[in-house]
């Protein structure tokens, strides 16, 4: 048992961080924004936290807080100009943002270490802290889903015209979703920084965009559980068997294509829907018999 834990301890940490990124991606999409900014926002959080601690000697909780705030600010600042754009154009603009963050990370090497990496970040955060952070984020996101904000997000996601015809401000809610996405990405970026010893700008580039999107698409875009299940499946599958690990990217690619074509709501949301439909069918056939 303890061997098992040692072997899979690292994987579990990776899973916790991945779930955080997944939730950051999830919350913007929840509000109908097609942003892929999570990777760039995570980079802001990770570098802010790491630099504050390694160069200025800040205690790590303060650095994490600063990273979270940096991510929030980044998300909010993106939201303001992007409010005018729609769909694909939002996606491309946020992709550009991620690329700019990567490029600056590579260029400003006196601050970030550039391509060589920002080294010797103390390992101050373990599974416990990361798990605690994830639990808090999951609680907040569930609260959003269960109350007024969740209803507003859902309306905007499905039909902006309907949402505003009922008094829901699309601009405000999408800016809020952006800021929340930035906060979550910044926090988990910081947590990753304090777990990995070295940060590279490219860690937060195109591959992370794909990963975060995949977690949400595979797991589901509606409930909080979706992205966590998506993260678990995509991270654990390659660990189960060697051949799967060799073809990790092919597997990711295939999963994305199959899920979006045959199960566009993702695994968890589809399962929930299936169960609900069965229950409804059962109750209506019962009524018919009576």
């Amino acid at each position: 048992m303890s061997d098992f834990f040692v072997t899979y301890h690292h994987l579990f940490n990776v899973f916790l961080i991945g779930s955080g990124y997944g939730l950051s991606q999830w919350i913007v999409m929840r509000a109908g924004v097609f942003s892929v900014a999570t990777a760039g926002l995570a980079s802001l959080g990770a570098y802010t936290a790491a630099i504050l601690t390694t160069k200025l000697g800040w205690p790590y909780p303060l650095s994490l807080l600063a990273g979270t705030l940096m991510g929030t600010l980044g998300g909010f600042l993106l939201a303001v100009p992007l409010a005018r754009l729609r769909g694909v154009f939002q996606a491309i603009a946020t992709l550009a943002f991620v690329q700019v963050v990567v490029a600056i990370g590579l260029y400003a090497d006196s601050l970030t270490g550039g391509a060589v990496g920002l080294n010797a970040i103390p390992t101050l955060v373990g599974t416990k802290e990361t798990l605690l952070a994830l639990v808090v984020v999951v609680y907040l996101m569930s609260a959003v889903n269960a109350t007024r904000l969740g209803r507003a997000f859902e309306a905007i996601r499905q039909d902006e015209a309907v949402a505003s015809s009922l008094g829901v401000s699309v601009t405000f809610h999408q800016a809020l979703a952006f800021a929340l996405s930035g906060a979550i990405a910044g926090l988990f970026g910081g947590l990753e920084a304090f777990q990995t010893y070295t940060l590279f700008p490219n860690t937060f580039g195109f591959p992370l965009i794909i990963a975060a999107l995949s977690y949400v698409v595979l797991g589901g875009r509606r409930s909080v559980t979706g992205p966590i299940i998506g993260t678990a499946i995509l991270l654990i599958l390659p660990e189960i068997s060697r051949p799967l690990a060799d073809y990790r990217n092919a597997l990711y690619g295939l999963i994305l294509m199959l899920v979006i074509a045959y199960m566009p709501r993702g695994i968890y949301d589809t399962a929930v829907l299936y169960l609900r439909r069965r229950r409804l069918a059962a109750s209506s056939s019962q009524e018919a018999r009576q």
């Binding site: 609680y139 269960a146 109350t147 007024r148 904000l149 969740g150 507003a152």
Partner: peptide, 27 residues
Amino acid sequence: VMIGFYRNEKTSTLASLLGLPSARRET
């Protein structure tokens, strides 16, 4: 139907985010 009530809802953004009892009661 519930989204129709949005105009007159009293729950603040913060209360909704924190999932405060008041927000859940209004829901």
